[in-house]
């Protein structure tokens, strides 16, 4: 992918993953360029306000983890970043979400182009009921990014390799995607998202329905992908947040309690609520 050559990784990425678990957050001082800036975000489902004055930034080549108790608005926040909430009738948003300095809720924004730049992986893997290859090709096809068969094939292979799935499926690309295992399906969804070359990846509890080994696989993948993308990941698994993220944001009842370097937040949080949460006193 072009981004890879343009932006060499600043840290070792996933290579030394096994050796230093919290070490994945060795990035805390060397934060890259700011990609997403969220200011004073309020979000409502009808009259029910779900997000309150949220401030957040996402930098280049970082993994930002969102943690917090169920129902605190993490998914809602994530979906604000690629305007997926637009499809929910009666929802309303105030404030600003800027991608590279431009408000994505401003006038004249091309939502389709936005969603191509800001890809999303869902909690429940959701492959299309097509073949494996057709799943990966989908984004290329609807966006008219490829024409010839050879172009499709190149992107399919590259994306499946990047998602660590190529070796397992290369002989059965024409088989139904739904014949894959749960973990394979989720990695297929990642490959599908990578195929359109997004710049930022949003992951909403991508491993919550998967077994530990597959979870590890997806965590490794996230760290590898960080070299080329910015990643925002929602997780219920605090160890997971600690293992893979550079910075962590703690959400509580629709507010960001604190955002800090992961190591700092998990060892020495500034706020009492955060400490209560990460020490398991509630949530």
């Amino acid at each position: 992918m072009p981004n890879a050559t343009r932006n060499p990784p600043e840290t070792g990425g996933g290579i030394d993953f096994g050796a230093a678990l919290p070490g994945a957050s060795g990035n805390e001082t060397a934060a890259g360029r700011e990609r997403i800036a969220v200011r004073n975000l309020n979000f409502y489902y009808g009259s029910h306000q779900v997000l309150f004055e949220v401030q957040e930034t996402v930098h280049e080549h970082e993994i930002l983890a969102l943690i917090g108790p169920s129902g605190c608005g993490k998914s809602t926040f994530l979906r604000c970043l690629n305007r997926m909430n637009d499809t929910i009738p009666g929802s309303r948003l105030e404030g600003e979400v800027a991608l590279d300095g431009r408000n994505i809720y401003g006038p004249g924004v091309d939502v389709i182009a936005l969603r191509r730049r800001v890809g999303m992986i869902f909690q429940r893997s959701n492959p299309f009921p097509f073949t494996i290859a057709a799943n990966v090709a989908y984004g290329l096809k609807v966006n008219g990014l490829a024409r010839r068969r050879s172009e499709f094939e190149a992107v399919i292979e590259r994306s499946l390799r990047a998602a660590g799935l190529w070796d397992e499926v290369k002989d059965r690309l024409d088989k139904p995607a739904l014949s894959l295992s749960g973990g394979q399906q989720q990695r297929l969804c990642i490959a599908r998202a990578l195929a359109v070359e997004p710049e930022i990846l949003l992951m909403d509890e991508p491993a919550s329905a998967l077994d530990p080994i597959t979870t590890t696989r997806i965590e490794e993948l996230a760290i590898e992908l960080k070299a080329r993308y910015s990643i925002v990941i929602v997780t219920h698994n605090l160890q997971q947040a600690a293992r893979i993220s550079d910075r962590t944001s703690f959400f509580l009842m629709g507010r960001v309690v604190e955002t800090d370097a992961t190591r700092k937040l998990f060892t020495n949080p500034s706020r009492q609520e955060t400490e209560d949460y990460i020490t398991g006193r509630f949530g």
Partner: peptide, 22 residues
């Protein structure tokens, strides 16, 4: 449910494309 539609939209499909293709 919306999960197939959401997947299509998140890949840059329009509402109509999501409806028709997925």
């Amino acid at each position: 449910q919306s999960h197939l539609r959401d997947a299509a939209l998140a890949l840059g499909a329009s509402r109509y494309e999501a409806l028709w293709t997925v």
